[in-house]
Amino acid sequence: MTVLSAEQLSKQYNGTLALNNLNLSVDKGEVFCLLGQNGAGKTTTINLFLGFTAASSGKAMINGIEVHPNDSSTRQFVAYIPEIVQLYGNLNGIENLDFFSRLAGFKYAGAQLSSFLLKAGLQETAHRRSLSTYSKGMRQKVGIAIALAKNADVILMDEPTSGLDPKATDEFTRICKELAADGKAIFMATHDIFNAVNVGARIGIMKQGSLVHTLHSNEITANELQQLYLETI
């Protein structure tokens, strides 16, 4: 079942084509990784799905509903994890999760909030510590917990493993797989080719706003993908 789709989606910024006629779909329980250089159009695609910018033409759809700018009706189905999850440094993990869950309309008890953080891989000893003491990986886990608490159908991730150490990346990959197994559709923009092969069911390669290749991860090795990527960009 398709929960995220783009139909001939294009975006121009001051005459420059940032996204050119994008067509893609992501099903429930699927992880789609989008590779591409800086400026290839990955973040623009995510911004269009979030309704942060208006499409020049075409449609961005979530759960069959067209996304419109500043219309929060489709945002109830979406969770977003940016490259750097900063949140609020003076609040602890639980407080941050509580704040963002309440924004989405969910009010959880402390134990429930803790269970989301645990499921996201954050150790209990860190739950009541100020976020200003967290590493980048730990912050990413709070971001995942926010997505879990929202029970979003779609999770949009913008280079979430950038700057993570290999162990943290591996842990992040494991959690993503668990989320997909739980039926979440994950759309991840990334530079990390090896992680894309590892976590993604399908992989797209983007160049100058166009989706040039779409591959199934079981059809290609990381080395082959790297070769294709380097040839493409």
Partner: peptide, 15 residues
């Protein structure tokens, strides 16, 4: 600046 605004809006908060 730190990307939290996008998270706030994606959670459903309006401007």
């Amino acid at each position: 600046e730190n990307g939290t605004l996008k998270m706030l809006l994606s959670q459903g908060a309006t401007w």
